[in-house]
Computed example of a mutant assay.
Amino acid sequence: MTKSHEELISDYQRSTSQAFFALYTDWFRQTKSQLRRLDLTHPQVQVLSTVEALSMENDEVTQAMVAKAADIDPMTASAIITKLAREDFLDRFPGKKNPRSKAIRLTQHGQDNLEKALVVMADFDKDYWKDQNPNRQDLIQSFKTKI
């Protein structure tokens, strides 16, 4: 039996996907607002933190390594890294193992701002998930009941 258009719309509006999207959208908007104070975006923080984490384990960190570890498309990672390098968050230089590849590392400016961003994100996450705002609690509860 095929569902009517109205039933399909109704099912979609009550779906797990829709509940997740509403919660994610709210979380992302709030995250964006918090990071705006530091002139950073969430993807930029993701790249900076990935570079730092990889630097702790590897002598050399490449753009390809960052894209893979951060689970970001290589072209997107390259654009983010280029912008962060222009703004003195990262140094880019020819790789030692393969001079055609670009190796990267955090600058002092990048390290300082990553530290600030990680504190902002940790505080935000703690507050976001325990927030008693009824609308947010409804979003969280709606998603929890669907998973």
Rank of each mutant, 00 (worst) to 15 (best):
M65R: 04
Q34E: 15
K126C: 05
Q18P: 04
A22D: 11
N58V: 01
L84A: 14
A67T: 06
E6A: 15
V47D: 11
D127C: 00
T62P: 13
D59W: 00
V119E: 14
M1F: 03
F20V: 03
N113E: 13
Q111S: 13
Y12N: 01
Y12A: 09
Q108I: 00
D91F: 11
F21I: 02
I104H: 04
V66A: 04
D112T: 12
L23H: 11
Q46V: 15
F89P: 02
E115I: 07
M75E: 10
V45F: 12
Q63K: 13
D125I: 06
S78L: 10
T82M: 13
E7C: 11
K83P: 06
A122K: 12
Q30Y: 11
R29H: 14
S4D: 12
N113Q: 15
D112S: 15
D73T: 00
K102E: 07
M1I: 01
R86K: 14
K146I: 07
L106K: 00
L38K: 11
T41D: 07
F93N: 00
N135C: 08
R29F: 14
V66Q: 01
T50P: 03
L114S: 05
I81C: 09
S4M: 02
S78R: 12
K32I: 01
Q18M: 15
G110S: 01
T62V: 08
Y128I: 07
F21W: 06
T145C: 12
G110T: 01
R92Q: 08
P74E: 06
K102M: 13
K96S: 04
A79T: 04
K96C: 07
E60Q: 10
T62H: 08
Y24N: 10
T31F: 08
S78V: 04
H5N: 05
I104W: 07
T50R: 00
P94A: 06
S49C: 09
A53V: 01
T16Q: 13
D138K: 15
E115D: 15
V120F: 02
N113V: 06
G110A: 15
P74C: 05
M75W: 06
D125N: 14
T2C: 03
K68F: 09
K144V: 10
T25E: 10
L90C: 01
R136T: 04
A19R: 03
M1L: 12
Y12G: 14
R36H: 08
G110I: 05
E52M: 08
P74D: 04
R92T: 11
